[in-house]
């Protein structure tokens, strides 16, 4: 995972609440077995409409998505994060994220920045008044800056640390191999095993 410190890019206003993962990437695109190449699948249904924000310049070049509350609800598909990432998004801003989406983002270096809804409204206003306005998202100071406006965002310390360092979770966990083995030795014998099959 790439290290994340600060990002500056064009912000895209998506004035909609409850953007579920079926909208971010419809299920028909989940049949692929690769982890990349999902850029064409991002918002596939909505992108068929010429008026959709990503079909308009300069938003087409956007890398910071500014969405309504409850972004990423529904399915656990990490493909939603891959599609956003593959399109070129580095940051999603929303006042509320679905838990699984937030977790998936952190694994892929996509920053899910939680910003108060009143501040989201201020950002929307600025980036719609001047389309193409660049925003700067700083993970160190946990702030979003648009021109003279700077607002804070929330992210938990652990995810922030992992993003900053670009760390792989599995590697971190395997440092605790002894603890895992010790736990396994304590597990009750009656807990189910899937092998051998007993059907």
């Amino acid at each position: 995972m790439e290290k994340f410190s600060t990002h500056t890019g064009i912000a895209v206003p998506l004035r909609q609440s409850n953007v579920d993962t079926d909208q971010i990437i419809p299920a028909v695109y989940l049949k692929r077995i690769t982890k990349t190449g999902f850029d064409d699948a991002l918002f596939a249904s909505w992108r068929k409409n010429d008026d959709f924000v990503l079909n308009r310049e300069p938003y087409r070049q956007g890398s910071v998505l500014v969405a309504g509350p409850d972004f990423g609800t529904g399915s656990s598909r990490e493909h939603a994060v891959w599609a956003l990432r593959d399109y070129g998004f580095k940051v999603v801003i929303s006042s509320r994220f679905a838990d699984i989406f937030r977790g998936n983002s952190g694994k892929q270096g996509l920053l899910a920045a939680q910003v108060e809804q009143s501040d989201v409204e201020l950002i929307w206003k600025r980036i719609e008044e001047e389309p193409g306005t660049e925003v700067t998202v700083d993970l160190e100071s946990r702030t979003v800056t648009v021109g003279s406006l700077t607002v804070p965002f929330q992210i938990d310390d652990y995810t922030r640390w992992r993003l900053t360092e670009g760390l792989d979770d599995i590697g971190l966990t395997l440092q605790h191999e002894e603890d895992i083995s010790a736990y396994e030795a304590r597990r009750p014998a009656w807990l189910p095993r899937t092998l051998p099959a007993r059907t």
């Binding site: 656990s76 493909h79 977790g103 966990t173």
Partner: peptide, 11 residues
């Protein structure tokens, strides 16, 4: 998510 699926598989 799939990253966590891999994590559970490995650990």
């Amino acid at each position: 998510g799939t990253s966590e699926v891999e994590h559970v598989m490995a650990t």
